[in-house]
Design a protein around this nucleic acid. Structure first.
Lengths: 188, 188
DNA sequence: CGCGCGATTGAGTAATTTCAAATCTAGTGG
DNA sequence: CCACTAGATTTGAAATTACTCAATCGCGCG
C-alpha cells in the first residue's frame, strides 16, 4: 500500500527512504467499507484522503433532497472538501465510499508540518493543487460550451473505467443532467 | 503599483524588504490597452499575470465561432491559461483586456526560480492554487445544481462590481446561457 | 443627425425535466 | 434451480426551460 503513495509523490519529486519515512508518519492508512461515510456534510473536515484502492464520491445535498456529485475519486486520486479542510469551515459535501476503499488520511496540521519538515512536499502539493485547478477549468469549459451529450462522451473518453464501476444515476448527477436524459443520450 | 503586489503576497506570507525586492525582480510590470490581446489561443503561453489595475477575460473560441468565457480577472486576481503555462502546451484560451490594464507578468522559469530562492513563495503559490481550486469547485457545484437564474443571482452577490464593468453579453457567456436568456432572466 | 453597439422582445423550435410506469438485473432465501 | 425483491435502467408523454433567429429599442458618440 505504501509504495503506491510513494510512487504518486515521486511522479513529481524524488524522496530518499528516510524522507519517505517522515512523509509516511504524517499519514494514517484507513480501511472503509462500501457505503461508509468518510466526511459528513455540515460537519468539520479532519482529513484529506489519498486513495490507494477503491472509489469515493463527493456530493452536495440540496435542501430539496437532490444530490449533486462534484467529484469521483479512484485509485491515485485525492479527495476532501478542500474549502472546509483548508479553511476550517463546515463541509458542503458528503464523501462516501462506492466500494470498499483503502486510503491514506492526512490532517491539515500534518500537511502543514510535512511542508515545513520537507520543503519538497510543499512543491508537491503546489503541483497537485495546480493540476487540480487545471482539471476543474477543463470541466467548467465543458459545462459552458458543450451539450449534455458531448459532456457524456467526454467523460467516457477521459475516465473509461468509471462507467463500469458506478451506476449511471451517479454519472448523471456528475454531469448535471437527470438520469432519464442520460439514459436517452447514452443510446443515441 | 508595487505595493499592491506586495500586499497581495503578504496576505498569505510575510516578506522582508529585501525578500520583496527579490520577488519583484522576477516580475515585469506591463501596461495594456483595452481590447489588447495578452494570450492568443493556439499559441504558447509565456506569462502568468497578476492584475494590479484593470480587467481581463479568458475565453475559448469554438470552431463554430462561439466564444465561451471561463474567467474574468480584475484587480488582485491572477490570470493565465494554467494548463498551457505550466505544461508548455498551446493555449486553449484567448485572454484580452476589457479595460486598460496594468499587470505584473511572471514567466514559468521565474516562477520556479522564485520558489527556489524564497521557499515561502512556494507556500504562497500553493495557497493561491488551493484557493483557486476551491473557487472553481464552487462554480461547478453551481453549474450542476442551479438553474441559470440562480447562477446569475449568485454572480451578482459574489462579484457585484463586475456587472457594472462588463457588457451583459459577456456575463451570459460566462454563465453558459445565451444573451437573450440572460436578459429575460435578469428582468424576472 | 445618424451610426453602431448592446439590450430587449417575440415567435417558433429544440433540449431537458418531471412524473409515472414498465423493464431489467443481481443477489437472497427457500 | 426458482421465485422474489430492491435497485437500476429505460420508455412515454406532457410541461418547462433555453435556444435561435429576427426585429426593435435605447443610448452614447462622432
Amino acid at each position: 500500500m505504501k509504495h503506491k503513495l510513494r510512487q504518486q509523490i515521486e511522479k513529481i519529486i524524488s524522496l530518499t527512504d528516510e524522507e519517505f519515512d517522515v512523509v509516511l508518519n504524517h499519514f494514517q492508512l484507513k480501511a472503509f467499507k462500501k457505503h461508509q461515510i468518510v466526511i459528513h456534510q455540515d460537519d468539520y473536515v479532519k482529513y484529506d484522503f489519498y486513495i490507494a484502492e477503491g472509489l469515493m464520491k463527493s456530493a452536495n445535498m440540496k435542501p430539496d433532497g437532490k444530490e449533486h456529485i462534484v467529484q469521483f475519486a479512484m485509485e491515485d486520486w485525492w479527495i476532501t472538501d478542500p474549502e472546509a479542510f483548508h479553511l476550517g469551515t463546515k463541509s458542503k459535501f458528503t464523501i462516501d465510499c462506492l466500494e470498499d476503499t483503502k486510503a491514506f488520511s492526512l490532517t491539515l496540521e500534518n500537511k502543514e508540518k510535512l511542508c515545513k519538515a520537507i520543503p519538497k512536499m510543499e512543491h508537491f502539493f503546489r503541483k497537485k493543487a495546480t493540476a487540480g485547478y487545471i482539471g476543474l477549468q477543463k470541466r467548467i469549459l465543458c459545462f459552458i460550451s458543450s451539450k449534455a451529450q458531448d459532456r457524456y462522451h467526454n467523460l467516457l473518453e477521459e475516465y473509461p473505467g468509471l462507467i463500469q464501476r458506478v451506476p449511471k444515476t451517479l454519472i448523471a448527477s456528475y454531469l448535471g443532467v437527470s438520469r432519464e436524459t442520460l439514459s436517452r443520450l447514452a443510446n443515441e
